[in-house]
Design a binder for these strands. Structure first.
Length: 554
RNA sequence: GCGCGAUUAGCUCAGCUGGAUAGAGCGUUGGCCUCCGGAGCCAAAGGUCACAAGUUCGAAUCUUGUAUCGCGCGCCA
């Protein structure tokens, strides 16, 4: 709708230029917005105020010329007014608003999808937790966010790949192996002083016991190094499988699991470093190899190869991201914990150094989750290994509530997650509010069928029967859905969908309480059924983007 | 110390590319079931958008400074 108005305004502008009412001859970057107050119409544009300076005329004068040129707009609006400092307000006809219903029915499941990303490949990498322990609640937020961002981008027309980067190289795997090995020896009766820098969680003991049951005592015979490697491989594999199962329970699936170790095995890390050297972006100092990231906006230069010859984590990240783009992605999205925000400049710098536009890498920072129970903070400490796992939360509050809660705030603001609240089946809990709206409409459909009334087919309804303000408001809300999805995709902000859903559900509940859909008059009932099923379609489409189910009964 | 982010109703938070009289949920108070599912609805109260300058037709939004809070600042991953 917005776009149609923009076209009309542009056309009016051109005609003013050619007819000589206006002189500057160029079209400013104006906006068409939904005003905050209904008295200001359905849409409002600031174009006259933007032109005023160049035209050397009062904004309202410019607006008058434009309004004269706008004409009747093919019946799109029934009134145009100039208001305030020079806004032009449009009052659209109900008939044109209810046209959106046919659009929803025509497009069905794809209503809301757009073409802004058509022909572009994007990769979304998220979760990417180390395979050294189970996923915790923070990973859950990253998983929900990454998956929803990927879905939203898909809806915007991008070809999307979901990828999980497995940090299976470096000394953390060694630490995992050592932790397991020591617990194993402990189980066999040895008195072990378990080191601080080993993984403390109980899952380590469980895994060690598992190995003991499988392999018996014979691993004690192995040389320590070999034993540790054995434990690392076995434990890493088991933990990875566990992570995959947890994600599956959460409804998150990946197209690709990408191993860091594989980068080393194929010589990609070496190749990456060689390329940077070739481009003259590196130098040696005190026996280490540095990358000149500070030439591209970073605070300081960063080490790629340490003086002991070992490569840094950053070096494999260089190789990884270089390789991502070689795979042909036009856009790469990384979802990180916000505590890594200090790494953003060096990643962008690295891309710039490689001759790639830093904008082609978007990094979404996901803030901490503050876990509460009845308003009291649940104690968590990674060091002691006492943390609440994602699986525990899914089992306790359910997948839908869990996902919805993770997406209720913008990802870069901290999130309070109250376990008791998420479980409550009451009006305090926002998850069910939206799902309930969907279930209610399904219930209406069941009742309608009992009365021999089917949800009407495309256009088989008289929209003039829809005369209530609430009905018009619902149609307007449905019209706003596609641009909401587009905005969520452009800004990588899935929480916009959540807010939209709450708004749409509220409008529906309000309507439902005020007026019966199945009324005395069959034609009116059919029209309302048509409207309400459009609401259902959009609720379902939006919930689907978030990975939350749209139940028919609750 | 340097850098990044935050600061909006009692609480938790939205607020689009700078737009007109700043919004929602929860909580509080008072109403609504003979009625398609009350997991719902209606109404009221509640604000110096941290503070101070600046930019302009117009600032919660942009700039600078101040305060408070959080995070990050390794040849760790």
């Amino acid at each position: 709708m917005k776009e149609r108005l923009q076209q009309h305004i542009r056309r009016a502008l051109q005609s003013c230029f050619s007819q000589g009412q206006l002189h500057s001859g160029h079209c400013p970057d104006f906006t068409v917005e939904v005003p905050a107050h209904v008295e200001h119409g359905d849409f409002s544009t600031n174009v006259a105020m933007l032109l005023a300076r160049e035209e050397k005329q009062a904004p309202r004068k410019v607006a008058e010329a434009l309004v004269a040129a706008l004409g009747q707009g093919d019946g799109l609006w029934n009134r145009v007014e100039i208001a305030g400092p020079g806004f032009i307000n449009f009052f659209l006809t109900p008939r044109c608003w209810f046209g959106v219903l046919d659009e929803v029915v025509r497009q069905g499941r794809s209503y809301g999808c757009g073409q802004q990303g058509a022909g572009r490949k994007v990769q979304v990498e998220f979760v990417s937790a180390n395979p050294t322990g189970p996923l915790h609640i923070g990973h859950g937020r990253g998983a929900a966010t990454g998956d929803a961002v990927a879905s939203v981008l898909q809806a915007a027309g991008y070809q999307v790949q979901r990828e999980y980067y497995i940090n299976d190289a470096g000394n953390q795997m060694d630490t995992l192996g050592r932790s397991l090995y020591l617990r194993y020896r402990e189980l066999l009766g040895e008195d072990i002083a378990f080191p601080q820098d080993c993984y403390q969680g109980v899952y380590i003991k469980d895994l060690a016991r598992e190995v003991l049951e499988r392999d018996g005592e014979r691993l004690l015979e192995l040389p320590e190094k070999q034993a540790i490697r054995h434990f690392a491989e076995y434990g890493g594999g088991r933990i990875r499988n566990g992570i995959e199962e947890d994600l599956q329970a959460f409804g998150v699936g990946f197209d690709n699991w990408y191993s860091e170790q594989g980068l080393y095995d194929r010589g990609e890390v070496e190749a990456g470093i060689a390329l940077l050297k070739e481009r003259g972006l590196t130098y040696e100092q005190e026996g280490a190899l540095w990358l000149r990231t500070s030439d591209y906006g970073d605070d300081k230069d960063r080490v790629l190869v340490r003086s002991n010859g070992a490569t840094t984590y950053f070096a494999s990240d260089v190789a990884y991201h270089k390789e991502k783009f070689e795979r042909g992605f036009d856009l790469v999205v990384d979802v990180w914990g916000a505590d890594h925000h200090g790494y953003v400049p060096r990643m962008k710098a690295m891309l710039a150094g490689l001759g790639r536009n830093p904008e082609d890498l978007q990094i979404i920072l996901v803030q901490l989750v503050n876990l509460l129970r009845d308003g009291q903070q649940v104690a968590m400490s990674t060091r002691s290994g006492e943390f609440v796992t994602l699986r525990e939360v899914i089992d306790e509050v359910g997948r839908d509530a869990c996902r919805f809660f993770f997406l209720m705030r913008r990802s870069d603001s901290q999130l309070d997650f109250d376990l008791e609240l998420a479980k409550k089946q009451s009006n305090e809990n926002p998850v069910y509010y939206v799902q309930y709206a969907h279930a209610r409409i399904c219930s209406i459909n069941r009742n309608a069928r009992d009365q021999g009334l089917q949800p009407p087919e495309l256009g088989q309804v008289d929209v003039d029967r829809l005369t209530l303000d609430e009905e018009l408001a619902l149609a307007k809300a449905l019209d706003r859905y596609p641009e909401t999805v587009a905005g969520a995709a452009r800004h990588f902000e899935p929480h916009r969908i959540v807010f939209y859903l709450q708004d749409l559900a509220a409008r529906f509940h309000s309507y439902y309480n005020k007026e019966r859909v199945l009324s005395e008059d069959p034609e009116t009932s059919r029209a309302r059924l048509y409207l309400v099923n459009c609401v259902r379609t959009v609720l379902q489409n939006a919930l689907l983007l978030l990975g939350v189910s749209a139940p028919e009964t609750m």
